[in-house]
């Protein structure tokens, strides 16, 4: 299982903890990740809204690079990168005019995108390529007693829901249960976190963040698990503003990869848990020693 790894800007910046926990987890599972050489920003949702053609070309460059460097499927952990790359692939296939533009632009720098490279999310890879059985084997410290509200955000399911249900995704739920945790029924799992509104229109953004955190608390969740660095950031970093407006709701938000790392018993300092604003203090207890398997 080899993939071209596309971290995107946030995993090297504010979403550092995501990469820090993703890489050792993948290595532990035997998934080979080769970071894409000379990758560029995917443009995220902002550029797409400003100039679609340029944005697609920008994103397509990464796809072309992946084809040049070993032609493996791309793994894009950041939900926005995942969506943008996927969208570019769709546009390439569905709109001949866009394909022409991309071909021309890439051709000018000696690159070519065939249209075939798959774009995968780590959740997709974990559930479908690695398999829950293999993951279960690696669990040393089951997350027993941890109640999690799985939060997918919007970009993994809208507009394309490629590996999970659009209204009621469950891949992360299944993953987290395999790790031994309990999934709390959380009806807001795909509700918007506010995205960039927390910065641009705070009244709207902070309110959305509050709704998500409050409901998680009401449902008895010990933490929220996310797949997107912006979701994690919104839910985590604005608790001061949330408290000021609505009152304290200190539910920590972690990346699902961090939970995996904890369950696998990987060294904590490798998981970036110290980077969160609302600290996640819960830790699994050591699992009882595994009894020797009875002779067949």
């Amino acid at each position: 299982m080899k993939y071209s790894y596309f971290p995107g800007c946030s995993l090297k910046g504010l979403g550092r903890a995501y990469e820090e926990s993703l890489l050792p987890v993948m290595k532990h599972l035997g998934v080979e990740l080769q970071e894409l050489d000379d990758w560029n920003c995917c443009g995220a949702t902002a550029y797409m809204a400003v100039d679609e053609a340029k944005a697609c070309v920008l994103a397509a460059r990464n796809l072309a690079l992946a084809e040049k460097q070993g032609n493996r499927p791309i793994m894009a952990p950041c939900a926005a990168c995942y969506l943008v790359l996927n969208k570019t692939k769709h546009y390439f296939h569905d709109y001949p005019a866009m394909k022409e533009t991309i071909d021309r632009a890439l051709g000018a720098v000696g690159l070519r995108y065939s249209g075939d490279t798959p774009v995968r999310h780590p959740l997709d890879v974990l559930i479908n390529d690695v398999g829950l059985e293999a993951i279960k084997q690696k669990v040393r410290k089951p997350l027993k007693g941890l109640k999690i509200a799985t939060y997918y955000g919007c970009q993994l399911v809208r507009p394309y829901a490629t590996f999970d249900d659009q209204y009621n995704p469950i891949t992360m739920d299944r993953l987290v249960e395999t790790l031994g945790a309990t999934v709390v029924r959380y009806p807001l799992k795909t509700k918007c976190c506010g995205g960039s509104l927390t910065g641009t229109v705070p009244e709207a953004g902070i309110r959305l963040v509050y709704i998500l955190l409050n409901e998680a608390r009401k449902r008895g969740a010990d933490c929220l698990a996310t797949v997107c660095p912006l979701c994690q950031f919104n839910l985590d970093a604005y608790h001061a503003q949330v408290t000021a407006e609505y009152g304290p709701v200190l539910v920590p938000t972690v990346y699902f990869t961090q939970l995996m790392g904890l369950a696998f018993g990987l060294p904590e300092r490798e998981l970036g848990l110290n980077r969160a604003a609302i600290p996640f203090k819960w830790r699994p207890t050591e699992a009882p020693p595994v009894k020797a398997a009875a002779a067949a």
């Binding site: 769709h90 569905d94 394309y160």
Partner: peptide, 8 residues
Amino acid sequence: MSSTTTKP
């Protein structure tokens, strides 16, 4: 896959 707005 969810639909885009294109029609063949």
